[in-house]
Nucleic acid binder design. Structure first.
Lengths: 226, 226
DNA sequence: GGTCCTCCCTACCATTTAGTATTTATATTT
DNA sequence: AAATATAAATACTAAATGGTAGGGAGGACC
């Protein structure tokens, strides 16, 4: 106590220790999120208890509360990851210089990659109602922007002739439905790889949306079965 | 009061009174199911309490238990209605004499009609886990049959040339995803009528699946918006 | 009028589960 | 090595909610 242990002694590398700790903490937090997302996705948000999540991780429930202050925050984080994927796809599409249809497919591919990714295998976005009102408003608004951007992409395609005449609003709901429904049936142990699925779906979307007289009519080389 | 209005008037059809009672009971049961299905669909099964359902109907909770022995039975009934719609569509498709693609569209249209119908606006089929094990097995098995039939319809179309080469399994997941996702966004108060939606989606599915060189390449006469 | 029978409601119970208070172990710093 | 801060476990609280028991109101039939 003769000397207050503050400044001089902690100076050498006080930051690194803190950094390592923070890094570990960050990783643990992510592990919690990953497990929770997977469980929420498989069994539903309300059907998954915090004890369930904890037991999968081999820890006890209060531990989870060191990383997320509530179950709802966990759900909120899941929603954000999913929306991050959507926005990443939109950014990719914006960066690509091509037709509206091409942009749309680039976007949807990226979005699907997120869905298949460990973390992005995120909760069916249905459960907006379980969120805290403030978070809900946030999620709804952000999702609305993503939806609108999807619609705009399709409208662009219709305008430049790469997409056949259609109602962009309905066409976007069509495309997003296909993609959003994936978590409902996809299982890692299933017969198809994410790549096969993305390939097939992209091809189906392309042929579904492409303008009838489109110059290059792509179709995935499907494996004939019989 | 001199004459009890009972006997004479009731005598002619004593059975009718009983019938009316049963009929009333049946109607009440249906009302419960309708309200519950709507609530489950909107807010999720687990987020909807029996008190919620009861209060919408203006009755008390125990009353519900006169028509359904448990909340899970209510969910089971919802699943059955949805599957009834699917099977009705399959029957319609089987009765139609045409290409695989035509059959598929007939089936999916009927299925969508069910989804838009008051009652068929049924719970996202996701919540299989909330069912009693026995019911769950039943639902899973029946759904698997419907899924398989959908796949078969597509395989038929591929075989007869009305549908382009593709993996029938993935194509069926594609088509069912579009349709199953509808309850997630459709609202009666929305801008589009069920007919418009069905028309658009059918057109998108047709052009998405039809064989490239298909003789009659249909495209819905979309209303050009601008 | 008396007796069912049907229906529904007011409590109530029991279970599940989100979240917390308190204690114990672990690692880091001086 | 002592001290401190962090992390995690045990044991608990409180609220929500599925489901039930028992009673009361009203019509139907003798």
């Amino acid at each position: 106590m003769s000397d207050t242990p503050s400044a001089a002694t902690r100076a050498p590398a006080p930051g690194r220790a803190a950094f390592d700790r923070d890094e570990q903490r960050r990783r643990k937090r992510e592990a919690v999120l990953r497990v929770a997302a997977s469980a929420f996705n498989r069994r539903g948000f309300a059907n998954t208890s915090m004890d369930d999540v904890a037991s999968v991780l081999g820890v006890s429930k209060p531990t989870l509360y060191q990383y997320f202050k509530s179950k709802q925050e966990l759900l909120y984080a899941c929603h954000q990851v999913a929306m991050d994927n959507g926005e990443a796809g939109l950014a990719l599409a914006a960066a690509h210089d091509g037709t509206g249809l091409e942009k749309l497919i680039i976007y949807l591919r990226r979005y699907m990659e997120g869905i298949f990714g460990d973390l992005g295998n995120c909760p069916v976005l249905t459960d907006v109602d379980s969120l805290v009102p403030e978070d809900r408003a946030n999620v709804v608004a952000r999702r609305k922007r993503i939806s609108a951007a999807t619609k705009e992409l399709i409208a662009l395609g219709v305008a430049d002739g790469s997409i056949g005449p259609c109602d962009p609003k309905l066409a976007s709901l069509f495309a997003l439905g296909v993609v959003n429904w994936i978590p409902a049936w996809y299982r890692d142990s299933g017969p198809n790889t994410p790549e096969e699925i993305m390939e097939s779906f992209a091809a189906l979307l392309i042929s579904g949306l492409a303008a009838p007289a489109a110059p290059k009519r792509q179709r995935a080389k499907a494996k004939p079965k019989a």
